[in-house]
Design a protein around this nucleic acid. Structure first.
Lengths: 340, 340
DNA sequence: TTGAAAGCGCTAACAG
DNA sequence: CTGTTAGCGCTTTCAA
């Protein structure tokens, strides 16, 4: 309702032209010290700050970056965001976050709307097609998180290694068959993980199977628990922690004990995983670092930097053994409540 | 790097002037059906979409709203965001989220940068001063969540009622002294809750005391647990669920059983509260609804609507009794591990 | 129904 | 060092 001061207001009060004001504020060196000082005074007096969006029209520099994520509800997003935010802040950028709610159309829409006012974009867990992403990448510097796309810089975690460690862990505990509880089919990481499990199983002489796909949520985990229980498996690796936690809850309700009857491993190591009972064994991703790295690289590209042909940055994972996995015991009869 | 099509491109290809294109896309009625159709065709063909930020220069209508939150890491934020997002979407708006990381300066900065490209702002859990918020409210329609400010529309929950219910619940269980574990001092809700507890205690003939303040995090809850254990209290109400959960963890580690030795109640009813052991008794806030209401009202104001003098919208809370509270038993000697 | 012109707030290129 | 000019992409008068 009230007007914010424009560069013209400042110019008038400082007795100079707008261009001088602009210079004084952006490149102080190119203006006489006295004038610059006077302008700065008037500016702070009026509370003037350049409108980044108007500025962007000519410079494409808003000092803002967009962080687009499919599901902000996933705690997985937290650390990512915090990392991004941190890296952005230390470079003088601010981050705007957009939640696409797992919708491709929504993602497109939001990106379109936001793009013009940011200098670059981090696409975390994008659900768009590779070509759509490349499209975006042509309009503004773009970094993709958790996914590999030709010609678009990306940051991923070492899924194969993580899955391998998880499988080894279960094998050491005596398990011989592993069930994978997959995430959404559109997820790049999901494909990677399943493939990695197949390979690891082969090399370690394990049997792998899958029950799914599932949405990457607690509820979906609960829903999947019946099928998992029925399958008589003794070890499951879930697409992510949320799913794993849901599964554990579901199993417990069915009278299946975790880890005594079934060992469960998740992916990500989100905060909650340390809070549930039993505490979750999980393949920890360096979430925060991922966010940071993505933004640092992005800002590099914005700063005119390097070629886009670079290989993806691969960040290491780490198996965190907690209480949801234990030694194999041959399946025993399990108490199950009557179906409701 | 590549250029997105401008209105000029569309105009040229459609054989009309930019102004006609603009009209055709915004107010189709004011353009001949044939021309409009042709323009629309070219536009979709080219994938043209008006740059909201450029448009905003003349209209102040970007169909975007900003959702500013102090700590996106708090699961409390989720449902709020989802609610907001939902209400925004159904009105054709998109939401950009900004995490201020509990910093006043950060909040100012972000708001300043983002304001010019949005039609309105929801300030959730703002840490800024009332006057600073009023300032913002003068520049763009603003709705405040979880806080009351004269002349600024707001949406709050019925803290007094919720606290009252919590106190009643504990009283019914036989507790006579209640310890409040406060949140950040800058939090408006915290003040409300403590005051409400004092009142309720008075009326219900309970003793109330407080140990704090604390950051509203799990870690802070863990840290507070020693003091709580030492105090010998049998019932505590925490500022929010995160704090409550941390407290429970901490107490458990100290050998204090929850709820057997100490009953704990939280605020908010975030997702995790159902996932921890014991499941948390909590004062549930209609988080989603809050987000929705805030945005609906905001959009109302954007649409030129009502006077700002309205009283805050107060949404009801609800006590959700789960497993972290139980009947009072006189304190017994508690096992404590030696100090490390 | 359509075009021409002016301007939103800001910056950059080009004189002085 | 500073002013002038032009223009970013879009919309909105004002005429035609």
């Amino acid at each position: 309702v009230a007007e914010r001061p424009t560069i013209y207001d400042v110019a008038r009060l400082a007795g100079v032209t707008p261009s001088t004001v602009s210079r004084a504020l952006a490149r102080p060196g190119r203006v006489s010290a006295a004038t610059a000082e006077r302008i700065r005074l008037v500016a702070t007096e009026l509370g003037y700050r350049a409108t980044p969006q108007a500025r962007a029209q000519t410079t494409t520099r808003t000092k803002m970056i967009a962080f687009v994520i499919a599901d902000i509800t996933n705690p997985f997003a937290f650390e990512l965001i915090r990392g991004a935010e941190h890296a952005a802040a230390s470079a003088g950028y601010i981050t705007v976050i957009s939640d696409t709610q797992e919708s491709v159309a929504g993602e497109r829409l939001r990106i379109d709307r936001i793009l013009p006012s940011v200098d670059g974009v981090v696409l975390a867990t994008s659900r768009m097609s590779d070509s759509a992403i490349r499209m975006t990448a042509k309009q503004r510097p773009t970094v993709v998180l958790n996914r590999k796309i030709v010609d678009v810089p990306s940051v991923v975690t070492d899924n194969p290694r993580g899955m391998r460690r998880a499988a080894e862990h279960l094998r050491e505990l005596g398990h011989r068959t592993i069930t994978y509880l997959p995430g959404p089919e559109a997820s790049w990481a999901d494909g990677m993980r399943w493939r990695a499990l197949l390979e690891a199983s082969h090399e370690l002489d394990l049997k792998a199977r899958r029950i799914g796909p599932c949405r990457p949520t607690v509820d979906a985990g609960v829903e999947a628990s019946q099928a998992v229980a029925d399958s008589g498996t003794t070890a499951v690796i879930a697409y992510n922690d949320l799913l794993a936690i849901g599964l554990i809850r579901g199993l417990q309700r069915l009278g299946v004990r975790v880890p005594d009857d079934v060992s469960v491993i998740g992916f990500d190591d989100i905060l909650i995983s340390r809070l549930v009972t039993p505490e979750l064994t999980t393949v920890a991703a360096p979430l925060r670092k991922m966010g940071e790295t993505a933004v640092q690289n992005l800002i590099g590209y914005i700063g005119g930097a390097t070629s886009r042909t670079e290989a993806p940055v691969v960040l290491p994972t780490r198996l965190v053994v907690r209480a949801s996995t234990t030694r194999y015991r041959s399946p025993r009869s399990r108490v199950r409540p009557p179906l409701s």
